[in-house]
Structure formats: C-alpha cells, structure tokens
Design a protein around this nucleic acid. Structure first.
Length: 248
DNA sequence: TAGCTTTGGCTGCTTACCTCA
DNA sequence: CATGAGGTAAGCAGCCAAAGC
C-alpha cells in the first residue's frame, strides 16, 4: 500500500481526534507529513477577494447554491472555498456578537445594581422619617387616643356595612384612617385606592436580589432588551438561578 | 403513503499555517 | 532571530432537512 492509497487520494479524511488502533507510528508520521505538504498550499485570500466576500456577507449571511457558484467563478475560487469562508465568517461573527451581548448585559447589570442601591437608601430614609412621625403621633396620644379609637370603630362599622351590602372596596368613599397594626406600629390605610403601606417591618427585608433568567432566554437576545423591566429582573417566582452566580 | 438512502448544508470543534509585535 | 498570540482556511464528526426511490 503506497501513501496515496493510505490517504485515499482526494477522498482521504484525516481526523486527528480519531482513535488509533494499529499503533503504527511510522504510518501516522507519513500521514501527518503528507497532510502538511498538502496544506502548504494554503494561502490567504487576496484583499480584493476578501472585500467582495465581506460585501456579500453584509447583504446575506447565507449564500444560495447558485449565488455561491457565481461568486466562486467571479473570484476564481472553488465553490467549496466560498462555502467554507461563509461558514467561518458566520462563526467569527457569532463569536463577536457574543462579546457584544456580554458587554451590554454587563452594562445593564451595573446600572441595575446602582439603581437598586439608591432605592435602598431612599427606602431607609423614608422608614426613618416614618418612625419619627409615629413617635410624634404616640407622644401626642392621650386625649387624641379616644378620637382615634372612635375613628377606627367607625371605619370598621362602615366596612362591615359595605360588605353586607355587597359593595366592593373600590366603591367605598374615600376614607383615610390610621390603625394599629399587629406589629405595634401603625398602618396607613387608603381605602379608596386599596393601597396599604405597612411600615416598621424592616426585619423582614424582601429578598429582591433573587434574579432569574427567563426560560425563553430573552436576555441573550438583544432585540428583547427593550422590554426589560424590574419584574423581569427581580422575578422571585420562577427558578432558583441567582444573579450572583453568573458574576461570581 | 411510509420508510429507506443519498445529498448537501449547517454548527462546533480542531488543526496547521501565516503574520505580527 | 526566536517566540508566542491571534487570525484564518480548511478538516472532521454529528445533526438535520429535502429529494429520490
């Protein structure tokens, strides 16, 4: 068997990853040498060829067979060479795109972190302010306590009446009141808007830091970044992926 | 019509060559 | 001049879809 037969002529396919079972080092060396000689002919494409290929790639990242033949003829290349150039180009482009996506994600993450920190500080300031106000309210208690209790009682009776009449909460007339909560503090209750803000509950810091990636992988798709919002980023309901795992 | 083979293209990984700092 | 890093053309395995039988 000569070298050409070993290599199978033009049909020879050498795989460096393939398992070696004959243990013939000499044979392997011959194959490697032959391959090196074969690849000696490898030359970079000319600037003109690259220029045209690049412009083609800009308009369409995948070539139709007919177009491929036309381009190959035009550039004096084998159709196979054109196909491989496009394959490699797509791979390089994808790699670059990944880098770009990564830097954009990183920027988004950094801005979210700084926003979260500023909101946290704002919340702390508001809590302190509320504590002070509550202290003032408690200090001025005494005589006022009776009127507060009356207010609370009236409010409870009013709600009971509304329930009896089958009224929903949104139909109740505005009725702001100050109640005593089970936390020993107070609860601002706005019956009209159903907005209720508990305060003095700092010991139960919400775990806002649980960040998950949506199942559909939209975070990796730049087109979808426009739809980002805090619900996406701080969704606590699905998955267990932690954002700090990603940046760890 | 279903099942098969063939063909061609794709992705992902890898190799070897070339260029340049 | 040697060398290492990065870019690039090309090889390979494996997968998939379309076409033909």
């Amino acid at each position: 068997m000569n070298l050409n037969e070993m290599l199978g002529g033009e049909e020879y396919k050498y795989s460096p990853m393939a398992a070696v079972d004959d243990g013939s080092l000499a044979c392997l060396n011959s194959i490697a040498t032959a391959r090196k000689k074969k690849e000696k002919n490898k030359r970079r494409f000319s600037d003109e060829q690259i220029r045209l290929l690049e412009s083609m790639f800009e308009s369409e990242t995948k070539l139709e067979p007919r177009k491929k033949l036309q381009v190959a003829k035009e550039l004096g290349l084998q159709p196979r060479q054109v196909a491989i150039w496009f394959q490699n180009k797509r791979a390089r482009w994808k790699s670059k795109q990944l880098e770009r996506d990564y830097s954009i994600l990183r920027g988004n993450y950094n801005s979210l972190v700084s926003r979260f920190e500023s909101l946290k500080k704002e919340k702390q300031a508001l809590v302190i302010q509320l504590q002070k106000l509550n202290e003032m309210v408690q200090q001025s208690g005494g005589a006022k306590q009776d009127s507060e209790q009356r207010l609370v009682q009236n409010s409870a009776e009013s709600e009971a009446d509304n329930r009896d009449n089958g009224n929903c909460e949104s139909e109740v007339k505005p009725n702001l009141s100050l109640e005593r909560s089970e936390h020993g503090g107070g609860v601002l209750s706005d019956d009209d808007s159903s907005i209720r803000a508990d305060y003095f509950v700092m010991e139960e810091e919400p775990s806002l830091l649980t960040m998950v990636e949506p199942v559909d992988g939209c975070l990796t798709s730049p087109e979808d970044w426009g739809s980002w919002d805090s619900e996406n980023v701080f969704d606590q309901s699905s998955g267990s992926y932690q954002w700090w795992d990603f940046w760890g």
